[in-house]
Simulated scan of single mutants.
Amino acid sequence: MANIKSAIKRVETNSKKRSNNNTKKTEMRSQIKHVEKLIASKDKENANAALQTAIKSIDKAVQKGIIHQNTGNRQKSRLAQKVNQLGA
């Protein structure tokens, strides 16, 4: 454990940030899994609605720096492709 006051503050700050980031990342992953579950059940309308919320949570994670922009774009693209294939 750190002895210096500023180092102790940094440890606390980093811990809080890590906790918040993990919460947001978990929520994002849950949204993605929800869309994939709806795709598996071939429910196009609900999958489209869930896709919009998943894209929103992915964009928020990218904006906050939790995931890299390319990762977010790849995830959004793959989900959109799967949802669009339901209609074909």
Results as ranks from 00 to 15, higher is better:
N84D: 10
Q69K: 15
I55H: 08
R74I: 09
S30Q: 12
D59A: 07
D59K: 11
R18N: 09
L86W: 07
M1N: 13
Q52W: 12
N70K: 11
K60P: 00
M28H: 00
A50Y: 01
L86T: 00
L86G: 00
L86E: 04
Q81F: 14
T26P: 00
K9E: 14
K37Y: 10
N70P: 03
S19G: 04
K25D: 04
L86F: 06
K25S: 10
K56L: 11
A54R: 00
H34I: 08
I67Q: 01
S41V: 13
A2D: 09
A2H: 07
A2T: 05
R29F: 12
I58H: 01
A7S: 14
A40Y: 11
K82T: 05
A54W: 00
Q85A: 14
A7C: 05
R10Y: 08
G87T: 11
V35L: 02
G72L: 02
V83L: 04
Q63K: 13
K25Q: 09
E12F: 06
I4G: 04
E36K: 13
N70E: 12
A49C: 02
K24S: 12
N21K: 02
N21I: 00
N46G: 13
T13K: 08
N21M: 04
V83N: 02
K56T: 11
E45K: 13
A2W: 05
H68S: 09
T13M: 09
R78N: 14
E12S: 07
L38F: 04
R10H: 07
